[in-house]
Amino acid sequence: MTETSECETGAATELRLPALKIDQGRGRSLFTFAVDGKLVPRIATVSRIRRDQDTELHGYQRPEVLKHVAAIRRYIETDESPLLPNAIVIAFDKRVHFEQASAATDGLGYVQAGTLVIPLIDGPDHGLPGFIVDGQQRCAAIRDANVDQFPISINAFITSETADQRSQFILVNSTKALPKGLIHELLPGASGALPTPLRVRQLPATLLERLNFDATRSPLYQMVQTPTNPSGYIKDNSMLRMLENSLSDGALYRYRNDDGLPRIGEMLTLLYNFWSAVSEVFPDAWNKPSRKSRLMHGAGIISMGYLMDAISHVRDNASEIVSTEEFAVDLKSVAEDCHWTEGEWEFSDGVVRRWNDIQNTPKDIQRVADLLQNRYRLSQLR
Score class of each variant (00 low, 15 high):
Thr78Pro: 01
Val40Arg: 00
Glu244Asn: 11
Asp259Tyr: 11
Pro85Gln: 12
Ile121Met: 05
Thr9Lys: 10
Glu320Gln: 14
Thr45Ser: 13
Ile321Leu: 12
Pro289Trp: 07
Thr45Val: 03
Gln112Arg: 15
Ala215Phe: 12
Ser191Cys: 08
Ser81Tyr: 01
Asn257Gln: 10
Ser323Pro: 05
Asp164Val: 14
Ala44Asp: 07
Ala177Cys: 06
Arg143His: 14
Ala12Met: 08
His297Phe: 05
Ala177Leu: 12
Leu108His: 13
Gly59Ser: 06
Leu194Asn: 03
Arg256Val: 10
Ala104Arg: 14
Glu56Pro: 00
Glu8Gln: 08
Lys180Asn: 14
Thr78Asn: 02
Val96Arg: 00
Thr78Glu: 12
Leu171Asn: 10
Glu209Leu: 09
Met296Ile: 00
Asp370Trp: 00
Cys7Phe: 11
Asn86Trp: 02
Glu56Val: 08
Asp79Cys: 05
Gly189Gln: 07
Leu30Ser: 06
Ser5Ala: 09
Asp93Pro: 03
Phe157Gln: 09
Glu326Met: 15
Leu15Arg: 10
His184Tyr: 14
Ile170Ser: 07
Ala104Gln: 12
Thr162Ser: 02
Pro151Ala: 15
Tyr110Asp: 03
Leu20Thr: 02
Val334Ser: 01
Thr4Ala: 09
Lys67Val: 05
Arg254Thr: 04
Pro230Ser: 03
Tyr75His: 11
Ser174Lys: 02
Thr206Leu: 07
Pro204Glu: 10
Leu208Asp: 02
Leu178Phe: 05
Ala103Tyr: 03
Arg50Glu: 10
Arg74Pro: 06
Pro262Ala: 09
Gln53Glu: 13
Pro362Thr: 09
Ala251Gln: 02
Asn212Asp: 05
Leu220Gly: 07
Leu203Tyr: 02
Phe169Arg: 06
Pro289Ser: 14
Ala71Met: 08
Arg375Ala: 14
Val46Gly: 02
Ala91Ile: 02
Gly181Met: 02
Ala285Lys: 04
Tyr376Glu: 11
Ala34Glu: 14
Tyr110Glu: 09
Ile76Ala: 07
Ile358Asn: 04
Leu178Asp: 06
Glu326Trp: 07
Leu203Arg: 00
Ile43Ala: 10
Pro262Glu: 08
Gly232Trp: 03
Ser319Asp: 03
Trp275Met: 06
Glu99Leu: 07
Asp148Gly: 06
Leu203Met: 14
Ser81Asn: 15
Leu17Gln: 03
Glu8Ser: 15
Gly181Ile: 01
Ala156Lys: 03
Phe274Asn: 00
Arg291Gln: 13
Ala177Tyr: 11
Gln366Ile: 12
Glu77Asp: 05
Asp364Ile: 04
Pro227Gln: 13
Gln53Tyr: 08
Arg73Ile: 03
Leu211Thr: 05
Leu171Trp: 06
Met223Lys: 10
Gln165Met: 13
Leu198Glu: 08
Ala190Tyr: 05
Thr13Ile: 15
Arg48Gln: 03
Pro179Thr: 06
Ala277Glu: 06
Gly109Glu: 12
Ala19Cys: 15
Ile132Pro: 00
Thr216His: 14
Asn212Phe: 04
Asp309Asn: 14
His184Pro: 02
Glu77Lys: 05
Cys139Met: 09
Gln168Lys: 10
Asp349Pro: 13
Ala141Tyr: 00
Arg62Thr: 04
Ser231Gly: 12
Ile90Arg: 12
Ser246Val: 01
Leu187Met: 11
Arg315Cys: 08
Asp79Asn: 12
Asp357Ile: 02
